[in-house]
């Protein structure tokens, strides 16, 4: 039997592209792979914790995002991860919180490609518009990925 995540969110689906990114990382399986200090590792831990506890928000967790991780990731690998956060996002608009599990994954991925995380406007459409302002190539890749079937 397969269970959907709480409130219809499929958190495990968000984990798949993150695992793909990890599998391509040079540090994978070495002592230098330290998940709490790695943006992808952090995002994966947030997801496992949330699945285990049945949570959609981890209050205060956004303060722990390892912004000091400057490893290089290929945008082509990151885009499916970002796209999956767009698919799972409930577009809470005014009720968006940076400690939402989707937001934690999204911000972790963003830090790898953007100079700063984008304050999320609570809607995918407005989000794409903001990415386009900061990074038009990434926005084009993301729009292409989102037009594929999830």
């Amino acid at each position: 039997m397969r269970y959907a995540g709480p409130a219809g969110m499929d958190l495990e689906k968000m984990a798949v592209p993150l695992e793909n990114i990890c599998s391509q990382c040079d540090y994978k399986g070495t002592p230098d792979c330290r998940e709490p200090e790695c943006l992808m590792g952090f995002a994966r831990r947030v997801l496992s914790y949330a699945v285990q506890k049945g949570l959609l928000d981890v209050p205060g967790a956004s303060s722990l995002i390892p912004k000091g991780d400057f490893k290089h990731y290929y945008p082509e690998a990151l885009v499916p991860a970002l796209a999956e956060t767009c698919r799972q996002c409930k577009e809470c608009r005014d009720n968006h919180t940076p400690d939402c599990v989707v937001a934690l994954v999204r911000s972790s991925v963003e830090y790898t490609v953007l100079s700063d995380s984008i304050p999320y406007p609570g809607s995918v459409f407005m989000y794409l518009a903001r990415i386009k302002e900061q990074n038009p190539e990434l926005a084009a890749l993301l729009a292409g990925e989102l037009s594929k079937k999830g």
Binding site: E35, P36, F42, R45, S48, Y49, V58, P59, G60, A61, S63, L64
Partner: peptide, 13 residues
């Protein structure tokens, strides 16, 4: 002050 849950910090580490 807001602090993340202790068990999350432990889980992370």
């Amino acid at each position: 002050q807001q602090a993340p849950p202790d068990d999350f910090v432990k889980f992370l580490e």
